[in-house]
């Protein structure tokens, strides 16, 4: 446990040493901190709507730091609340995606048989489909709530992970040490868990961080198209309401900028950290 803690600390310090990685870590710490503390310090009540027309689409003032939206609600507070949902969906959807992707990749890379072939065909099939129309169709068939959004994104974003993991497993499997432990009499399960998995984990870590970036964008897109949870408002949902209420045409920039910049910084943070992690953990795979 202690050794693992040290290793984690070492990885963090190596990400910190890279200027892109450091920028990413700063962004992520900032946004995660905001999403945890923000709604506690500045609670958001969606029922607190305007009672006078002057409060609708009101520009930033001392009372409303980022102005108000089409219902007269405080945009600063709703942006803080939205951070939680965007992060939550991004992280949980990626967890689903990584678990499926890693399992499919490990299995189809290690075993050669009918089932393994079938898994790879399914992977290729999903890889061939355009993602945005796919998640739109699934979300509109299954309905709009947070759980469905998470499932839809998680269940559609695993194929690329499966592909990467599979190709690495194939190359590890062909190495001599695997042959040696098999000669000693190690079972398939033991070889997979003790010898192959630890070698694949670095790739999975780096991939996870990059998949979160994609999931955050996917959630934002779904929510923007009106397929998000109407109750639990994310940054994407805010932009949906901004779009539908014509904020862009009215020049209400204070409604568009906060959630949009939030998404950009969050995605950028995960991308920067993910790329740096990839560079550190898998030095031969990508030269950046």
């Amino acid at each position: 446990m202690n050794a693992r803690g040290e290793r984690l600390a070492e990885i963090f310090s190596r990400i910190w040493a890279d200027s892109f990685g450091r920028a990413g870590l700063v962004l992520l710490t900032l946004i995660i901190g905001i999403s945890i503390l923000g709604p506690i310090i500045f609670p958001f009540d969606p029922r607190e709507v305007a009672t006078s027309a002057s409060k609708i689409f009101a520009p930033p003032t001392a009372q409303h730091w980022l102005g108000t939206d089409e219902m007269g609600r405080d945009i600063f507070r709703s942006t803080l609340a939205g951070a939680r949902i965007s992060l939550l969906v991004g992280i949980t959807a990626s967890a689903i995606s990584i678990v499926i992707g890693a399992f499919v990749g490990l299995f189809s890379g290690y075993y050669h048989g009918l089932f393994s072939n079938l898994l790879m065909r399914v992977t290729d099939f999903f890889l061939a489909l355009p993602v945005t129309p796919l998640i739109i169709v699934l979300a509109s068939v299954f309905g709009q709530n947070l759980l469905i959004t998470i499932m839809v994104i998680g269940m559609t974003s695993w194929p690329s992970t499966a592909r990467i993991v599979r190709s690495l497993v194939l190359s590890i499997r062909a190495r001599q040490f695997v042959e040696r432990v098999r000669a000693i009499g190690a079972s398939d399960a033991r070889i997979l868990c003790v010898h192959i998995l630890p070698n694949v984990m670095p790739l999975i870590y780096a991939n996870t961080v990059l998949v979160i970036a994609g999931s955050v964008l996917a959630e934002a897109t779904l929510a923007f198209l009106g397929l998000g949870d109407p109750v639990r408002v994310s940054w994407g949902t805010m932009l949906h309401y901004a779009f539908v209420s014509g904020a862009a045409g009215r020049g209400v920039w204070w409604y568009l900028l906060p959630p949009g910049i939030g998404i950009v910084l969050l995605v950028l943070g995960f991308t920067l950290v993910g790329n740096t992690l990839d560079k550190i953990l898998n030095p031969r795979l990508r030269e950046f």
Binding site: A220, F224, L239, A248, G249, L256
Partner: peptide, 23 residues
């Protein structure tokens, strides 16, 4: 490039509208 990649397409469009259209 990395920044551009992080931009949601729909949001970039909305910003383009507000800058080149509305203002």
């Amino acid at each position: 490039s990395m920044a551009g990649w992080s931009f949601p397409t729909f949001w970039t469009g909305l910003i383009a509208i507000i800058v080149f259209g509305t203002y």
